[in-house]
Design a protein around this nucleic acid. Structure first.
Length: 845
RNA sequence: GCCGGAGUGGCGGAAUUGGCAGACGCAAGGGACUUAAAAUCCCUCGUUCCAAAAGAGCGUACCGGUUCGAGUCCGGUCUCCGGCACCA
């Protein structure tokens, strides 16, 4: 053992040892409790950043801890290897995306290993390998068969700069999520996954996600966006058409004064002759704050009261939600109100807040029952002052609503829906904000969609046995125009599997979110062994053993996209009979960002800390320790160079203590649990050690509060350094503490723990040791300090033995010199004793 | 606008179920060692009053409430962060 702590030397040494011994290799063992610990796999950009270090350090602590706890732990790593940056690199540097990607993977793998992460690399997956994306294609074919994959013309988000289609989730503030160009709408034929078929189930089972952060569950719910309401047909006067609208407020149906339809609505072109004017509304669709309308000249009839109301085309009505047409109730909807003001349309009040009705004071009682009976018909203008600040969108009592007048809005809603269904005007329906998932990308570096176009047979799926459809390597990636695949003759031209005639392959590739929607299942098979076909016949398979993921760890930025898609895919795979779980991730930990100078670390801001530099200077153990100590995992972590030094100082001190006492510590002493004849200092250290085992274990178990766990270790070391062993028994205690602190530290800073474990005469590896247990008795304080308060203010402190009764405590507190002085002659009203905490004496003035 | 989350020393952050506010670390100040510096070790460290000590007062964004007792619970206000956003 060397005097100086040299992380470079010991870290490389142990990394080699762990790899050679294969101590992180995991095998399926049906007799052992399993724990699947997973961190979100990285995009192989080539360099790791502090966010990676933090994410993987958190996962590594959990994996190592669970392993020491006796679980069979699956802790894999892989590469989300398809995607745009590889193509950008190809355009910029002329390297093939494949070459670029694989080089980056090599490089990042070295860096990840340098952090000392306990991965089983035999489970590694790489999504750009044919053996992986073959299964993307396989799932696609299965989904095609079940009508879960389909093709449709639709307006898609088009990024002019990336020359590609984006998913709704990839559009942020009308800008491309990658390059921030303004996204435009373009009509293209695209492949979609019917995620909406699972909307209700995905929403319902949100309630089962008890191991997820609440806010993430909420974001999922909001994204799915369930809206319960009713569809009503309004006949259009003069033509044989019904205008179908959707509303969640049927209680306002009697207040309809006009109708609005989306510019893309099929009726729009029929009703409007002047196509120029229609275009003008279309151009301003969905973008502008200002509401723009175009009167069609037609009127619709409200089936409930026969009112004749004008039909407008309006830029704020969305074709994608509901029916693309709305009824407008300006009195009770702010948008309709603004529109009515602008185009001078009537406002009809049909709901009045209860207070307004009460204030009108009819009768002396004013009870609800009376009101229902006596309520005179309201004149709209007499109540309109309450509309001064815009529409009244709240609940209330219905007025001017025919037979439903005087009902409360929630009751009215139910009755009106029933009435509409009975009369055949419409029906109760549910709509979701969630849209089907567009998966087509006009990109090269992705999974080819396994479909062939034949002039005779139309769209023909590639037969299963022909998979994978290999992505050709002999292409030029220029970044201009369409997909490079269009230029690959050998790829493009093929035979129709049905008729054998000449046919053309689909050149679109899949969204990379498809790759990451099931990679956690792929890990179960092991590298090179992905095979869902055998999974069908074998229920005792690796997937049914390992799934679901017990702990998933990653950034909040994936709270909707990746997590929702994964939940969807897992259900699709379940419904194919290949897996028996519905929720892929039992517990989710969303770690915070790494912040420096008040902003997220990013190259563009120039506030990055390079982990490689950090590891070179302080070592992996220090880097890990700091990133775990500076903040709890779910919070943002403010970077501090000085803080890193603090973490380093702690490890140095630990090293120093062990070095100084190395000889005495290596003597093989019996570490007995019985603390016979311990001197007071030894007894204190012994107690502190048990307390620390308890604290660290609980902090890890309870929400993974590593920061306080590490603080506990620092306290224990402080106690150890102030203890000077003199007798043989002292040494037993000291060795006991040393061993425990190393075991407790090992998940956080594995290399130094391993090195010192060996240095005090133990056999490696420390990770084959059991996690220590604490003895509740030994952790108890001999004498407890109690706080004595008078009227809630701290006045004195007393020492008591743990076992004594409340009355005895009371007596001791009252006989305390200071307390006696302060209480004096004042009357004692009450004395409250809180066990182990305090005594509060309530005195009068 | 709607829905979440958070406001604690100079800083990062502690504080099971309401019970000593500020653990642990960083920074700062003082001291020891050293020719000197670094490193290391020891001491101080929320704030006000007092020359100092003893002691006392104030203090967890702000205002009010419940309670013997509130950082923690309730009502209201302000600020910051995140998500969604013409969703009918």
């Amino acid at each position: 053992m060397e005097e100086r702590y040299d992380p470079q030397k010991i870290e490389l040494k142990w990394q080699r040892y762990w790899a050679e011994e294969g101590i992180y290799k995991t095998e399926l063992n049906l007799l052992k409790r399993k724990f699947y610990c997973l961190e979100m796999f990285p995009y192989p950009s080539g360099e790791i950043h502090m966010g990676h270090v933090r994410n993987y350090a958190i996962g590594d602590v959990i994996a190592r801890y669970k392993r020491m706890r006796g679980y069979n732990v699956l802790h894999p790593m892989g590469w989300d290897a398809f995607g745009l940056p590889a193509e950008n690199a190809a355009i910029k540097h002329g390297v093939h995306p494949s070459e670029w990607t694989h080089k980056n993977i090599e490089n990042m793998k070295i860096q990840l290993n340098r952090i000392g992460l306990s991965y089983d690399w035999e489970k590694e997956v790489t999504t750009c390998s044919p053996e992986y994306y073959k299964w993307n294609q396989w799932f696609f074919l299965k989904m095609l068969k079940k009508d879960l994959a389909y093709r449709k013309y639709s307006y898609v988000n088009w990024c002019p700069s990336c020359a590609t289609v984006l998913a709704n989730e990839q559009v942020i503030d009308e800008k491309c999520w990658r390059c921030e160009s303004i996204v435009i709408q373009k009509k293209l034929e695209q492949w979609f996954f019917r995620i909406t078929q699972y909307a209700e189930e995905l929403l319902q089972s949100c309630d089962e996600l008890s191991g997820w952060p609440e806010r993430v569950v909420l974001m999922q719910k909001n994204w799915i966006g369930k809206g319960e309401g009713v569809e009503v047909d309004f006949p259009v006067e003069g033509i044989d058409e019904q205008l179908k609208i959707f509303t969640t407020r049927p209680d306002t149906l009697f207040g309809v004064t006009f109708m609005c339809i989306a510019p893309e609505h099929p009726l729009s072109e029929k009703l409007v002759e002047d196509t120029h004017k229609l275009e003008a509304v279309k151009v301003r669709y969905g973008k502008e704050e200002e509401k723009i309308g175009l009167f069609t000249g037609y009127y619709a009839i409200n089936p409930l009261n026969g009112d004749k109301v004008p039909v407008y085309i309006a830029n704020f009505v969305l074709m994608e939600y509901g029916t693309g047409a709305i009824m407008s109730v300006p009195a009770h909807d702010q948008r309709d109100f603004e529109f009515a003001e602008k185009y001078d349309l009537p406002v009809k009040v049909v709901i009045v807040p209860e207070e307004v009705i009460m204030n009108r004071g009819h009768g002396e009682s004013g009870t609800r029952g009376d009101k229902d009976v006596h309520s005179p018909p309201f004149h709209p203008f007499s109540v309109s002052p309450f509309l001064q600040n815009g529409a009244y969108e709240g609940e209330g009592i219905l007025v001017d609503s025919g037979q439903f007048t005087t009902l409360e809005s929630d009751i009215a809603r139910e009755r009106i829906i029933r009435f509409i269904e009975k009369k055949g005007f419409g029906k109760a329906v549910v709509h979701y904000k969630l849209r089907d998932w567009g998966v087509s990308r006009q990109r090269y570096w992705g999974t080819p969609i396994p479909v062939i176009y034949c002039d005779k047979c139309g769209i023909v799926p590639v037969p299963e046995e022909d998979l994978p459809v290999i992505l050709p390597m002999d292409v030029r990636v220029t970044g201009k125009g369409g997909s490079p695949l269009l230029e690959s003759e050998t790829f493009l031209n093929t035979e129709c599997p049905k008729c054998g005639g000449r046919a053309r392959r689909e050149t679109d590739t899949m969204d990379t979110f498809v790759d990451s929607s099931w990679y956690f299942i792929a890990y179960c098979f092991g590298k090179g062994n992905i095979n869902f076909k055998s999974a069908i016949s074998n229920q005792q398979s690796a997937i049914s053993y390992w799934m679901p993921v017990d702990q998933y760890i990653g950034g909040v930025e994936h709270a909707v996209l990746h997590l929702l898609y994964s939940r969807f895919f897992t259900r699709v795979i379940r419904d194919l009979g290949l897996i028996n779980v519905s929720e892929p991730f039992q517990n989710l930990l969303t770690q915070g960002m790494v912040i420096k100078d008040g902003a997220k670390m990013s190259k563009s801001k120039g506030n990055v800390v390079d982990p490689n530099y950090l590891i070179e200077k302080y070592g992996a153990d220090t880097s890990r320790l700091f990133s775990l100590f500076a903040a709890p995992p779910e919070k943002d972590l403010e970077w501090s160079d000085k803080g890193v030094e603090g973490a380093n100082r702690f490890l140095n001190r630990l090293w120093g203590v062990v070095y100084k006492n190395r000889e005495a510590l290596s003597v093989n002493r019996e570490t007995t649990e019985e603390s016979i004849h311990l001197t007071p200092p030894a007894s204190r250290l012994y107690r502190k050690t048990h307390q620390t085992i308890k604290k660290v274990t609980r902090d890890i178990e309870r929400e993974y509060h590593f920061n306080t766990a590490i603080a506990g270790l620092m306290e224990l070391l402080n106690e150890m350094t102030s203890f000077e062993p003199k007798s043989d028994e002292d040494w037993v205690t000291f060795k006991f503490s040393t061993e425990k602190i190393l075991l407790l530290l090992s998940p956080f800073s594995p290399h130094i723990a391993e090195e010192l474990w060996e240095a005090i005469g133990n056999k490696p590896s420390i990770f084959e040791q059991k996690w220590p247990d604490w003895d509740e008795e030994a952790a108890k304080e001999e004498r407890i300090e109690l706080v004595v308060q008078i009227n809630g203010k701290l006045r004195s402190k007393i020492m008591i033995s743990p076992g004594i009764s409340d009355d005895e405590i009371k007596e001791i507190a009252l006989s305390d010199q200071k307390i006696k002085e302060i209480v004096g002659t004042k009357a004692i009203k009450k004395v409250i004793v809180v066990r182990g905490k305090l005594v509060n004496i309530v005195v009068g003035e």
